Structures are given as structure tokens and as C-alpha cells.
Simulated scan of single mutants.
Amino acid sequence: MSAVAMGDYEQAGELKIGQVGIANLRIRTLDVDRLIEEMRQRVQRAPRLFARAAVVIDFGGLSQVPDVATARALLDGLREAGVLPVALAYGTTATERLSEALGLPLLAKFRAQYERADGSAPAPAAAPPPQEAARPAPAASAPAPAAPGQAPSPGLIQAAPVRSGQQVYADNRDLTVLTSVGAGAEVIADGSVHIYGPLRGRALAGAQGNEKARIFCREFHAELVAIAGHYRVLEDIPSDLRGKAVQVWLEDQQLKIAALD
């Protein structure tokens, strides 16, 4: 994505990453050509993350949902850009009618996550089981190391390496990985994430919208890091932080990454 697209104007579509690695495209401006071009640039910048990625379309940022023809044009364009629209985010009855006309399911949990982030009351949403999840080691009786924004439940301890294609999810708590997270692997927590070995895959903290969650890593090579849906990919991370011990946090809705002293 160009520098202008990244920061000099408000984007037409805000891409956020859900707790199972599904991207949620919240439509802010119904400019089909612009939305398609933004997505094409995302795929070109990080094809390993976004090429053929499942995307949920959320029209909740608009005053009214688009007509069927406009929505079809958007879906077709997003497919041509390289992603796969799989559902609409739950909204009004008009959204439900549109989903039926498009032949797409409705998913409620993405709307709940945005409502929580926007400060209004979230709808109840159960956390889904992880996809191709690694079998986590039994949780230790002691909580994970304390960090700002950690969940109140005892932390989940993952003793074995998280290998490519595996996913570990800490529901309503912190996650501590004692070894490594391999390329293509994914670790997710509703609280903070602590990794005591190399991080080469993806780490997502605050998966249910906790903006105070943090990510701590001893050796940073991440494909993607995200907190409460705000993300950065490897291509957007300063090269001088790679291989370093870092922490990741949110500040004024911006994802910050800094070396640990």
C-alpha cells in the first residue's frame, strides 16, 4: 500500500483481524473502486497473509446498506483483488435481506467486537474453537506474568512449540508461549501474549476488543501482530526491530512496537 493510502487520508475500508484469523472489512465509504484498489494493494504488500484470505464484509459503518447490484460489484471486485468474501457481519434487517440475496451467511461476532471497540454495549458472542489448533499444554496453577490489560482468569501456558499451521487460543485470559511460534502458526489471546522464544508467525492479543492488551516477544520476526484488531505486517515493521526483544501495544488507536530495554 502506498504511503498516501496508509496515512494521509481516512481509508474507505478499515481492515481488522478477528480472533480466528478471519479479516473483517468494515465499510466506511461506499466507493467500490477505491475499496477494491485498497484491498489489491494489501494483497500485493503481504500476499502470504491476505492472498485468498477469508473476509467478512461489515456494512455497519454506513447509514444504509447498499443495493444488491452494488454489493455484488464489491464482492466480485474483492475476489478479483485476491481475497474471498465469505459472509456479511450481522446488522439490521436490511443486512439480513441483503445476505439472503447475495447467498452469504451472517456472522454476529465481528459486529460485537466493533461495538465493544466503539464503546457501546457488545452483543454476546461465544468464542469459536480454534482452527487446526495445537493441543495446548495443561494450564499452570500460577497466572501468567502480569502485564497491562491482562485478563482476570489464570493465564494459559503453552510449553510445546507452536508449529506452522497450528493455532493456540487463550479464551478470556493471557497466553504465555515458553518456546517458539513458527512461520505460519498463530497464537491468539483475549488478554496479553507473552512469547519467550522466536515469534515467526502471527500473534493477536486483545482478540475480543481489549485495547490494553500487549504482546511481549523475546525474538521478533512476526508475520503479523495485532491488538484489538489493529494490525501491522512484517513489511510495515522497521528492520532494526527484527530479531530483537520487543513489546507491542496500542496508543491513540495506533499500534506501537518498541524494543525492550
Rank of each mutant, 00 (worst) to 15 (best):
A205S: 08
G103S: 09
A134S: 12
Q150A: 14
Q158M: 11
A73I: 08
G206T: 01
E10H: 11
Y169I: 10
A147G: 14
T70Y: 03
P145W: 04
M6E: 14
A23N: 05
V246M: 07
A5V: 15
A147K: 05
S180I: 12
A123Q: 11
I36Q: 06
Y114L: 14
V65N: 00
D31H: 10
A125G: 10
A142R: 10
I227G: 08
P105V: 04
G243C: 04
V246W: 07
H221T: 01
T179W: 14
K212H: 12
R173I: 06
Q158I: 00
P161R: 09
A139F: 03
Y231P: 02
G21P: 09
E223A: 08
I215S: 03
R48N: 12
I157R: 06
P143I: 04
A117N: 01
D190F: 07
I257H: 02
L25P: 00
R40N: 09
A121G: 07
Q64T: 13
L175T: 06
Q44F: 06
Q158V: 00
A51M: 09
L199C: 12
N210E: 09
A117V: 11
A46D: 14
Y90C: 12
D236G: 05
I237Y: 01
Q158H: 06
C217G: 09
S192L: 12
S2L: 10
V248I: 13
K212P: 04
L255N: 08
G243E: 04
G61Q: 03
Q19M: 13
I36L: 06
R45C: 02
Y169M: 13
L224Q: 13
V162E: 11
A101M: 11
L156H: 09
Y231E: 07
L107E: 15
G182D: 15
